[in-house]
């Protein structure tokens, strides 16, 4: 496991989780995860399906009780100072969980009431959020009439209606068109600029790369790698990715050669993707001087392929 990289903006840790362990249905789902997130930082939580992302997140926002470990939100222990900790966090779940009985504005008001604010403060905050999240034209409509992008905006607005210090966003852009995704990215950037600690899970690698200051890669309930995206990719994938056409003559032999040297090629449609470190790439180039191929830096998609390949093994 790679050592977590120190975040860049001081020591203002707003989320601190140590030694999280959780079993569900008799199966160990999370096994000793540590994570921190600081003010003004976006922490990207990545991993293939079943890696333990959602369970970890659910423990952090108090939905599940960890079997072991400690979670502190803005300095409050979630287990012993639950009310204060919950007051300091906001959650945008994967599924829309609007209150379908209320309008867009009504949803914000009702959610705000679950934090017992002063009424005038709450109403003023809601006006600001409606303006900032572009929800003005729909404020008096029911949420089910909104497009997917605006539903997500409302979910995020609802998550921050009480001015939390930490925001958990569980796949906030899944199913959105590119324009709506970019709009949500801007909102997330805005939360970071406000000084919130944002924990984000996503399956979109470009999103994780663009938004996250640091990544935490989970695999089989453990931290597989942590740090900035380049460091994580170096740890898990390697320094370079070689792309070979699957249709080219002799490719099968090259793939066998790579496998014999411990590489793990993965075929995606018409190409083989092979992650190599610098000595591996040098050996590959020397051994196949006439071969046509492409070399590029690894992406987070390669990371997922590498993790999936490790899982299969």
């Amino acid at each position: 496991m790679a050592a977590p990289t120190a975040p860049r903006n001081g020591d203002n840790v707003l989320l601190s989780a140590t030694g999280l362990v959780k079993s569900l249905g008799g199966k160990r789902v999370v096994e000793g995860i540590d994570m921190t997130c600081r003010a003004g930082e976006v922490l990207g939580l990545l991993g293939p399906n079943g890696a333990g992302k959602t369970t970890t997140l659910r423990m952090c926002y108090g939905f599940l009780r960890p079997d072991a470990g400690q979670i502190r939100i803005a300095g409050h222990d979630l287990a012993t100072e639950g009310d204060a900790a919950r007051r300091a966090l906001g959650v945008c779940t994967q599924d829309d969980t609007f209150d379908s009985e209320f309008t867009v504005r009504g949803n914000l008001v009702q959610t705000g009431r679950y934090y017992r604010p002063r009424q005038e403060d709450l109403l003023a905050r809601i006006d600001v959020l409606i303006e900032r999240f572009g929800l003005g034209p729909f404020a008096n409509q029911k949420p089910e009439t909104l497009s997917g992008g605006f539903k997500r905006r409302l979910m995020i607005a609802r998550a921050v209606v009480h001015n939390p210090r930490v925001a958990f966003l569980d796949e906030p852009t899944t199913g959105l068109d590119p324009q709506a995704r970019v709009a949500v990215w801007e909102l997330i950037n805005g939360l970071r600029a406000e000084g919130l600690a944002v924990v984000l899970t996503t399956h979109y690698m470009d999103e994780a790369e663009r938004l996250s200051d640091r990544l935490l890669v989970l695999q089989a309930g453990k931290v597989r790698a942590a740090g900035q995206s380049r460091e994580v990719l170096g740890d898990v994938v390697g320094e370079h990715v070689v792309l070979l056409s699957a249709q080219a003559d002799g490719t099968a032999q090259v793939i066998e050669w790579l496998r014999s040297r411990g590489a793990r090629p993965a075929q995606i449609l018409a190409d083989w993707h092979v992650a190599l470190d610098a000595p591996g790439l040098a050996a590959f180039v020397a051994a196949h001087p006439d071969l046509r191929y492409e070399v590029r830096p690894p992406t987070l998609d390669d990371l997922f392929l590498a993790l999936a390949s490790e899982d299969r093994r």
Partner: peptide, 14 residues
């Protein structure tokens, strides 16, 4: 069906 419990449980409510 309405998932209103889930919405409530992500707030200060247990």
């Amino acid at each position: 069906f309405q998932k209103s419990w889930e919405g409530q449980l992500t707030t200060q409510l247990r």
